[in-house]
Amino acid sequence: MLLHILIPDQSTQQRFDPFNADAGNGLFPNGSYITPPPDPSRVYTPWNTTLAKKWLSELKNKPTIVTIDNEIEIAHSTHQDMHPDPIGYDEELKRVVDFATASKEVLPDVPVGAPSTCSWWFYWTSVIGWSDTAAHDNIDFLPWFLAKMKEAERIAGKRLLDYLDIHYYFQPDTTANDAAAKALRLRMTRSLWDPNYVDESWVGTDPQNHQWNPSSVNLIPRMKTLIKIYYPGTKLSISEWASTNDDDITGGLVTVDSLGIFGRYGLDAATYWATPAEMGPVGLAYWLYRGYGTYFGKFSAQVNLATPNHDTQGVYAGTENGKLTLVIVNKNPDTAIAFDLSNMPSGTYFIRHFGGGAGVAKWQTTISLKANNYIVVPAYTALFLQQK
């Protein structure tokens, strides 16, 4: 009996290299998977640690951090043409150990981050599912991974993982972008830190993990606790995150709020997904913190609010070289908030803000403050103050 196996070319694949008929994405034009999958070796050169070391050694601009893989747990879907088989705990760990070892041999002073996991679901299991978790003593993936990387350090005689690197995207759906969706978007930053905030998505009703308080994401404190338990000394990185709507003023306010939370809770590194427009809401959120000649303090300062409402306001303070910096976010769509700035050092302050009724209007100047001042922050506005 003859067995005929279809090897798709440019006429049958959804996308392909016009200069190489064999190099397609492994999907039919309707988006369905080609079965059996084409042999990846026909169009790809297998990547290995020897090639990785050669590439790293020849880089003219050395990286500040090396991350191993990127959302590798879904590679069978996103890169079905390269790796059609689902990736489980063991393969993901082996890839990280092998390539981290290679990186440390070539660039011993450059930190390594991994596993760059894509979402809440894959923090706790693999794409294979709970049978894979059960096969690993019912230990959720990231705790298991941290413990194994600690063991890898003992075997290698050196640390191979410097940053626990994850991706984080808010799970609730705000695509409607109506008043309710905007309010939800602005509340969702609580998932970064608040153990009392039940996530307003499937995570809050069907969390699918074996962790404490599983319906609350509580992202940064949770991950720092896992690090403390399973691999102390590891830093925490969120190498992908986003506002959920870069073109809406609420996306800019979410970004300001998130950056303040990152500072308050000691996140070590973060990278925004995609490049926002410089004068758009998210671009202005970064301008607020990082505009020419300004900085946000390296050391936290205490801020007390009489009646804090984290759904509608955020206040973040820091100090550097004895100078105070303060960021206030008013997430109310139509209500100004008055703040009593008691016991702030008097003197001249650089001030800048964006938002308000004009949407993304920005403005900056210097003002004088006394020891006690009321300051009114308009609706949908973020404000930055820096002591001169």
Rank of each mutant, 00 (worst) to 15 (best):
N332T: 13
L305N: 09
L107M: 04
T275W: 13
A285L: 06
F141L: 14
S368K: 11
Y349H: 01
L2D: 11
I238E: 01
I139K: 04
R222K: 15
N61P: 04
Y89G: 06
L326A: 05
K228P: 03
P195Y: 13
R352Q: 11
L51G: 09
K53P: 09
I337L: 12
W47H: 10
Y380W: 01
I351P: 00
T133N: 07
Q364M: 10
G297P: 03
S131A: 13
F350L: 06
G355C: 09
H79P: 01
V282S: 04
H167E: 07
Y33D: 03
Y197N: 01
D165H: 05
A176M: 06
D199V: 10
W212Q: 10
K60H: 07
A102Q: 02
G318I: 07
G260V: 10
G252I: 12
M279R: 09
I72N: 05
V203G: 03
W121F: 12
D257G: 04
Q10T: 02
L164C: 13
G252H: 12
Y197K: 01
L284N: 01
D165Y: 09
G357F: 04
T250H: 03
N209G: 11
A147M: 07
D137R: 07
S346I: 00
V96F: 06
V66E: 02
R95T: 12
W202C: 10
D199K: 05
E71L: 09
W55I: 06
W130P: 04
V110A: 07
Y272E: 06
G26Q: 10
L326T: 05
I238N: 05
P84Q: 11
M149W: 13
L27V: 10
A152S: 12
A135E: 08
L3M: 07
W212R: 08
T366G: 00
I7S: 08
